[in-house]
Design a binder for these strands. Structure first.
Length: 724
DNA sequence: AGCACGCCGACT
DNA sequence: GTCGGCGTGCTC
């Protein structure tokens, strides 16, 4: 009877751990292998005292204990907290903490090869390997690959042909080295030094704190938080730097390496399984001193985390919208609270949430005043498209007004680089039949198909659907009647090329930069000045530094203002500020041209006068008046299914079951903003309460009272950010 | 997540 | 007749 029933949380859509029997007492956090159906899974021994009410014969045994340090208690607490807050199952958070299919077993032994027999044809490549191994016996494939100019295929071929043989095995060692903490950094200016000193103190404290590091692009935020990282390292603790996915660029990493002399551990969704295994292992063993990652890096099991930095904290990509819906920026603050450590939020355009937390003294604030290295902020010119002159210019299939065109041409002539920004992929947002007005719609979604690659392909921007443009209109059966309406980046590039025939143009969107390789290639081209004019979307707005880029033209500054989102103004401000910040980052002054039909809108005013705080104050009053976040709380519930009647009925049934409560307001049900997506009908209910009300608890108990058809899916989004 | 089970259409 | 598509439910 020395057998023990333990609770094991599995990386599945499950909120409760399963029961298993173990031959001995297992510490909470132990990573174990357990049987699951007819296969095996890993799981984590969970601290849970609920008695086991399963018949004993159904309880299976724990199979093995992985050779891996236990998941730290703070991480277990973090999963529990995150699951309760987001109403997503604990098991899914566990999967983010241990995101591996296999590779949990102890470190892989790396085979070391040596010459075995010289036979067959010794090609020049093979000779290189032979020469290398004669000089340096007993090397890994990776070593050989690095030291010779020979590819992996040659080495593998030699192993297969038994020219090489395994001589020995080497333990895999953590590739992440400790930086030299005494390496002197750049000289900081006064406001940077003040901020750095404060952050260093925070890193010494071993207590929770949240600090907003507020400074414009180029004010040296990175250099300042590097100082805090160094202090955490001196304390023997790990640092986590979170960046928006897109900002995890070679540029950022180069800068890090220049300052610290070593590479940080990197975590993002596109790591290979081997990179993932090595990095994960280094992290849980405390051998990765600095981890730089996208939002998913937050849930990794850091045993001695001492600092979290959320760079570009306002960035929308911190909000994960799939499977588990959470905001990594908010969760980072909670992780810091649970782990009793400082969290630094950095931004030039802080979110309203963060600013309100500063105003109510929940967060500390540090300002970085002047621009680093002497570069000045760009001038902003607002082009009023309502003015008769401009209006005429931008009508009839042209979107670049005279002022903007002229300034653009002058920039290119001076040998500087320019960027045209338009947040619309493709050639034209709308394509219709000039005879009958027919538009082409996606078969899976409630959205129009967008023309791509200069009129040869139609693409749905919500699902992956694409087709070619039929030469006959399916409505009136006329031929060659399609007309493109409005501009996309491809069309703007066409227009720019028409009056700048010699300029070298590049289109920079997620279509043309869809792999890290292509991305690096294009970034390189810009840096080497092989491109004069960049026409791009959002993807170009972030994180890059191009010294010769002095001109930014915003083709349509109004796009995101009008999409009915409660954060439309805030997001527009942040986006425009960021785009504007791409210009004039080197020695040369920058110029920004904003084309708008709303020049008097607070967003445009704030951008051109640099009045961020005034804008936030107006925005804050607006939200407060409506009880919207951050002054109230929202939870969005989306019901989706293939049968539209089932979806509609279920939404109404949920609304009928809504418990009357003075503190909570129900909005909806109504068809969601995208009422049909990937073949599923979608309805939405929105629940609103005051800031302090425990809304998750309320929603949980409400939903538990309604039996839903299992073919329907329920998506609960706590603190929704997008309203699609 | 996987995997089994079960229900429908279309094929040797 | 069965092969196999996917939608649904279960895993201690």
């Amino acid at each position: 009877l020395n057998k023990q029933v333990v609770k094991v949380l599995l990386p599945l859509r499950l909120d409760e751990p399963f029961d298993y029997v173990a031959p001995e007492v297992l510490q909470p956090g132990s990573v174990v292998q357990v049987p699951l159906g007819n296969r095996k899974s890993f799981g984590v021994v969970w601290p849970d005292s609920t008695p086991c009410n399963l018949p004993i014969e159904r309880i299976k045994p724990v199979l093995a204990n992985y050779d891996c340090p236990p998941i730290p208690q703070v991480s277990l607490d973090f999963v529990d907290w995150a699951s309760e807050y987001t109403l997503a199952p604990k098991g899914l958070f566990l999967r983010m903490m241990i995101p591996m299919e296999d590779g949990l077993h102890s470190n892989k032994a790396i085979p070391l090869y040596d010459l075995y027999e010289l036979k067959g044809r010794i090609t020049p490549q093979r000779q290189q390997v032979v020469d290398y191994l004669t000089e340096h016996p007993c090397r890994s494939v990776e070593d050989i690959e690095e030291a010779t100019s020979v590819s992996r295929a040659v080495i593998n071929g030699m192993i297969k042909a038994e020219l090489l043989t395994i001589k020995d095995l080497r333990e895999e060692v953590s590739p992440f080295q400790m930086p030299d903490v005494n390496q002197p950094g750049p000289t900081l200016n006064e406001s940077q030094q003040v901020a750095a000193d404060r952050l260093i103190q925070r890193a010494k404290d071993h207590q929770f704190s949240a600090t907003l590091l507020d400074g414009v692009t180029g004010s040296g935020k990175t250099e300042v938080y590097y100082e805090a990282i160094l202090e955490a390292l001196k304390q023997g603790r790990q640092s986590l730097v979170m960046l928006p996915e897109i900002a995890l660029s070679t540029q950022w990493l180069q800068r890090f390496e220049e300052r610290f002399g070593v590479k940080p551990a990197i975590w993002h969704s596109e790591l290979t399984s081997a990179q993932r295994r090595i990095t994960w292992r280094a992290i849980i063993e405390g051998k990765a001193p600095v981890v730089v990652g996208a939002r998913s890096a937050l849930f990794l099991p850091y045993p001695k985390l001492g600092l979290i930095i959320v760079d570009e904290e306002h960035d929308g990509s911190y909000k994960q919208e799939e499977q588990v819906i959470y905001n990594a920026r908010d969760m980072a603050v909670v992780r810091a609270q649970i782990g009793k450590l400082p969290c630094i939020l950095a931004s030039a355009t802080p979110s309203l949430e963060t600013m309100i937390n500063v105003q109510t003294s929940k967060y500390d604030i540090l300002h970085l005043e002047s621009r680093f290295g002497g570069a000045t902020m760009p001038d902003v010119h607002v082009v009023d498209l309502r003015r008769a002159k401009s209006k005429k210019e931008v009508s009839s299939q042209k979107w670049l007004g005279e002022d903007l065109r002229q300034a653009l041409a002058e920039t290119v002539e001076r040998g500087e680089q320019a960027m045209l920004f338009l947040n619309r992929r493709g050639y034209a947002p709308l394509t219709l039949c000039s005879d009958c007005g027919e538009r082409l719609k996606c078969v899976n979604c409630d959205s129009w198909l967008v023309h791509h690659q200069n009129s040869t392909k139609l693409q749905c921007h919500h699902c992956g659907y694409f087709s070619s443009l039929p030469n006959q209109c399916p409505g009136c059966e006329e031929k060659d009647t399609w007309v493109a309406c409005g501009p996309g980046v491809e069309r703007i590039a066409e227009e720019a090329q028409s009056f700048l025939p010699k300029a070298r143009l590049g289109i920079l969107t997620s279509d043309t930069m869809n792999t890290p390789k292509k991305m690096a290639e294009i970034i390189g081209q810009i840096q080497d000045h092989q491109l004069d004019v960049l026409v791009g979307t959002q993807i170009m707005a972030k994180g890059y530094h191009f010294p010769k880029l002095t001109f930014v033209g915003v083709v349509d500054a109004d796009i995101s203002l009008s999409n009915g989102d409660l954060r439309a103004a805030e997001k527009t401000y942040q986006l425009l500020h960021q785009v504007a910040g791409r210009s004039g980052r080197g020695e040369l002054p920058g110029h920004v041209w904003l084309q708008t039909y709303n020049p008097e809108n607070p967003v445009m005013q704030a951008i051109c006068k640099g009045q961020r705080d005034q804008f936030l104050a107006i925005e804050s009053e607006e939200r407060k008046a409506h009880g919207f976040p951050p002054f109230g709380r929202l939870i969005s519930i989306i019901i989706s299914g293939k049968n539209r009647y089932d979806v509609e009925n279920a939404s109404k049934a949920l609304a009928r079951a809504f418990p009357h409560n003075d503190s909570v307001q129900l909005m909806g049900p109504s068809p969601a903003a995208i009422a049909f997506l990937r073949g599923r009908t979608r309805w939405r209910l929105l629940v609103k309460s005051s800031r302090r009300y425990p809304l998750q608890k309320f929603v949980k108990s409400w939903l538990s009272r309604v039996e839903l058809k299992s073919s329907l899916r329920l998506q609960i989004d706590v603190d929704p950010y997008n309203f699609m």
